[in-house]
Design a protein around this nucleic acid. Sequence first.
DNA 1: TGAAGAACTGAACAACTATTCAGGCCGGAA
DNA 2: TTCCGGCCTGAATAGTTGTTCAGTTCTTCA
Lengths: 225, 225
Amino acid sequence: MVYRRTHQVVKRLAARRSAILAAARDAAAEGGMAAVQIAPVAVRANVAAGTVYRYFPSKADLISELIAEVSRDELAAIRRAADAAPGPSSALAAAVTTVAVHTLSQRKLAWGILAEPVDVDVSVSRLASRREIAGEIAGRIDAAVRAGHLPAQDTALAATALLGALHEALVGPLAPDNLDDSAKLRDAVQTVTLLALRAVGVMDARARGLVVQQTVVPAKALVGA
Amino acid sequence: MVYRRTHQVVKRLAARRSAILAAARDAAAEGGMAAVQIAPVAVRANVAAGTVYRYFPSKADLISELIAEVSRDELAAIRRAADAAPGPSSALAAAVTTVAVHTLSQRKLAWGILAEPVDVDVSVSRLASRREIAGEIAGRIDAAVRAGHLPAQDTALAATALLGALHEALVGPLAPDNLDDSAKLRDAVQTVTLLALRAVGVMDARARGLVVQQTVVPAKALVGA
DNA sequence: TGAAGAACTGAACAACTATTCAGGCCGGAA
DNA sequence: TTCCGGCCTGAATAGTTGTTCAGTTCTTCA
């Protein structure tokens, strides 16, 4: 063997792989999953179309990894926010708010990742990612139920419904299209969070209190949106 | 002019048009919007591919009309159910239940019509249809608010969120895939209806009562699903 | 520095599908 | 019955886009 990968080469390969993924992410953020096409992504990443296939066996694999990456980020953010909360209800509110903020801050990307149909291969991996997030929410609901803050319920179904409500209200085709300034964004986040909390059985007054608590931190995240 | 359309010919043309639309609907019900392809639809409708273009200028027009048709049916069902209810809260519950039942009874079709991305031309017409349904729900929420049964709120956003919750919980990729027997179907409908009513501010106890009221009639509709 | 192998290129290929159109068919009027 | 014009057919066309691969360039190491 007369050729071995140098550390520098390994680094360059990794960088290129990241560049391709980033290019795919940018494309999705601009035009949804339909815009993630090999040729344009390759151009963005400054490589030839064929090179993409040295890093990803197929387009489906590329998209799967993109989805996994975005979902990982979101899940981490949810956990961070929820774990920092003082109690289970507050944690649930934080989790819901985080989902809302993340969704809003990259609407097209979220739409592509959440709803657009893709090959079966991709949909399998997407399903796994979404289940993780739904499971996290379900767990938070469950904690609040066990703490006696919420009535007993099918937490998995509730979590799914909550995510559906958030996504539809914030990025779906019926979502208001004038969520331009940050005041409106914050209003929208608060409104849907309130709806979500009441849906799982939080009393109106208490829900409003929890929503207000969640206002400060996420508002900052929206500035960069 | 030596040729004029006979009544019989007019009828045949209309029948053929309906057949094509029905074929498209069947295809969508089986495999989502992606399965609505000209050639297969033509085969189903017992016509040649080219004939489809004598009835619809393009595939986008065909799909637009399909969506409009399905939405019209659903909207009519919602209105019928809600108008038969004794009061505004009951009407809202009836409307929500109707959406849930309709959605469930044709999951693939609903998914295709609600979420799958299509050409811009189609998305415009789809948006209009969905707005009508969301508007109907928003109106019912508004009536309940005016009657003092619900707190004041952004009814348009609430309606959108409700639809999102229903759809995601019942037909989205996270929806439980074992909604096979009618008992489970009824459970699912009741659960999401309860969530939806609580989301807009119906008190838990009252919401449960409204949900029970709505159980009998729609259950029958599900038998044929 | 040169040989060997890895990485990259980008044009060609392949698969899929909406759309067209020249030619055949059928129904209507006289 | 005959002629005419709209209706229908379905193979060919055209556009799009994922994937391949022969040739080129770059990297490693003796």
